[in-house]
Design a protein around this nucleic acid. Sequence first.
DNA 1: AAACTATACAACCGCTATACT
DNA 2: TAGTATAGCGGTTGTATAGTT
Length: 228
Amino acid sequence: MGRSPCCDKLGLKKGPWTQEEDQKLLAYIEEHGHGSWRSLPEKAGLHRCGKSCRLRWTNYLRPDIKRGKFNLQEEQTIIQLHALLGNRWSAIATHLPKRTDNEIKNYWNTHLKKRLVKMGIDPVTHKPKNETPLSSLGLSKNASILSHMAQWESARLEAEARLARESKILHYQTKPSSHHHGFTHKTLSTTWICKTNQGKLNTLTFFNGPEQQFDLFTSNQNKNKSLP
DNA sequence: AAACTATACAACCGCTATACT
DNA sequence: TAGTATAGCGGTTGTATAGTT
């Protein structure tokens, strides 16, 4: 309900962090842990609000963060998970160890989204933008894209229905720990069969946890699943 | 070399959910 | 039970840098 007023206080610094500030924050957390973020800045000798400190820590200073370029595998994972989850960056981040939701979100917005648009795929729906009939398209490239999209759409719809059912079950079985999206991604561990538009069957293993294998589309006819 | 534009990403804002009193 | 503080989330903005004219 109540919103933190900490950032509104006068005299608190905003904008890019300096090395000195980073060091102060790091040193404090290494020694004491972050504890209450609200009281941390004063204790650490920083003229920042607690929220700013928390973001700096979680998105940049945390030692278990992998920085630098995303590799192909990571890119594919993001695209695939985005097709299923939409802009649920924190949920996507749980399947990319050492990457932050902020980093993934930025990478999606600056790289991947544009790439899909270039390919003629709507980055929101993950469907081809213009519903041009197959026959009028250059088949080789577009057909594989459309095939890919059809498979994903099929899986996505199946997943949505499944998750809707599971979330109800989980609601009774456990107290949901995650936030407003209504279900706990981390607790789901499911493999099921989904049917593509071509009537083929795929197995889909879903969200076993960050350190376990994320294995979508294990059937043979889906070797073309990867996007360039 | 300077001005302008595009890109990348760090950081902030405002919201909701949850924990606590 | 209601009110408040805090954490976490996604959207958006600001700024530094690279590229182009």
